[in-house]
Simulated scan of single mutants.
Amino acid sequence: MNNYKSLKKQLKFCIKTMNDSSSLFVVDSNKNFTRKRKHLFGSTLFNVLLLESGSLKDEMFKLFGYKLDTPTASSFVQARSKIRPDAFHTLFDMFNERTQKIKCYKGYRK
């Protein structure tokens, strides 16, 4: 369980780092993720990784705690489309780099 928490902490740190320079990873840096809404850059990136195999509507309810003011699946798809695909590559590379430095994960690398 401790390994899970440290991995999650590393992932959140990587997403926070990317969130600080989110204009590099969005389609239109002048418009996308500039206002405060339910789908922010960092949370959208994290939520894409948390999606399971259920319907998108059910996944949104699960992510937002089954509240009545849960954003629609359509709004999530729109927010997801504002993120450039290379953002996920950058997140993957950054996460791998950070976890290679952790002693207990070195055995999983080549």
Rank of each mutant, 00 (worst) to 15 (best):
A79Q: 11
Q10E: 13
F41M: 07
F88I: 03
F92S: 07
T17A: 13
T72N: 04
K57S: 12
D20V: 08
T34G: 04
N3D: 12
D93E: 12
K8C: 09
G42F: 04
K5T: 08
L49C: 09
N2K: 13
Y4V: 13
T90L: 01
K5Y: 15
D58S: 12
Q78N: 03
N96S: 09
V77Y: 02
N30Y: 10
F25P: 02
V77S: 02
L91R: 11
N19C: 12
N2F: 05
M1D: 05
L40P: 04
E59S: 04
S81C: 04
F25D: 01
D86N: 14
K62D: 14
P85M: 00
S74K: 12
F64M: 07
D20G: 15
L11Q: 07
V26N: 03
T17M: 14
K12E: 02
N30E: 13
F61W: 10
N47D: 10
D28V: 08
A87T: 05
V77C: 08
T44R: 06
L56R: 11
V77E: 03
R37D: 06
N47C: 09
V27Q: 10
E52G: 15
K12S: 03
G54C: 05
E97A: 09
D20K: 11
K110V: 11
P71D: 00
N3G: 01
F92Y: 05
F46M: 13
P85D: 01
R109L: 14
S6Y: 09
K12G: 01
Y105D: 00
K67E: 14
Y108I: 14
K106W: 08
V77N: 06
F95P: 00
M60T: 04
